[in-house]
């Protein structure tokens, strides 16, 4: 996801361009959803939170400073909403309970989303999401999660290896 493109779309949205906002949704909704999913572990809640995130983006668009980090702004809104939901509903779902919620998700059992959940911990899921879907470099992710860059790089590589291995197993 190109940072400058997101900034441009946010700028146009702030000027009242709803078409730009729809384009922003189209370009970023997968990344927002996947990011929220790492907090909420539930399709329905993550989808709900995703829609609310975009509602909040629209409502607070005038607070966005053009030329600053659009990606980070969107993700901050998403994260704050996810944490509020968790605190409100006290539905912090432990990863070992994922199996109980499986029936609520439209994702295939052998698909990438379910495999991500099964084989990676929350931090690994978030690192992979930020890098693959949001285009963050490892050093940028290191700043976000407050870790050394080397740690993020090795966590990412290990996470991807685990994921690929698991996906290959499931294909057999």
């Amino acid at each position: 996801m190109d940072r400058l493109e997101i900034d441009k779309l946010l700028k146009k949205t702030a000027q009242g361009d709803n078409v730009a906002f729809e384009e922003l949704y189209k370009r970023t909704n997968k990344g927002v959803f996947a990011f929220l999913y790492t907090y909420l572990h539930n399709y329905a809640d993550a989808e709900d939170a995703m829609q609310t995130t975009y509602l909040k983006i629209k409502r607070s668009i005038s607070a966005y400073r053009v030329g600053t980090n659009g990606r980070a702004w969107i993700l901050q809104i998403a994260k704050n909403h996810a944490l509020n939901e968790i605190a409100k509903n006290k539905r912090l779902v432990p990863l070992d309970a994922v199996g109980e919620i499986a029936c609520e998700t439209p994702f295939e059992e052998t698909g990438v989303m379910r495999t991500l959940e099964r084989v990676l911990n929350e931090e690994e899921q978030r690192i992979v999401c930020l890098h693959v879907l949001w285009g963050y470099k490892h050093r940028e992710i290191a700043e976000i999660v407050n870790s050394p860059t080397g740690t993020v790089t090795s966590k990412y590589k290990r996470a991807v290896e685990k994921l690929k291995r698991a996906l290959k197993e499931e294909e057999k």
Partner: peptide, 26 residues
């Protein structure tokens, strides 16, 4: 690519209430 396809195929479009929410300048 599989991951992106999965998300593309399962996520719903923008909800009407989000679409209809007026932007502050409007």
């Amino acid at each position: 690519k599989r991951w992106l396809d999965e998300l593309e195929n399962t996520l719903p479009p923008m909800r009407q209430e989000v679409h209809d929410e007026p932007l502050p300048c409007e």
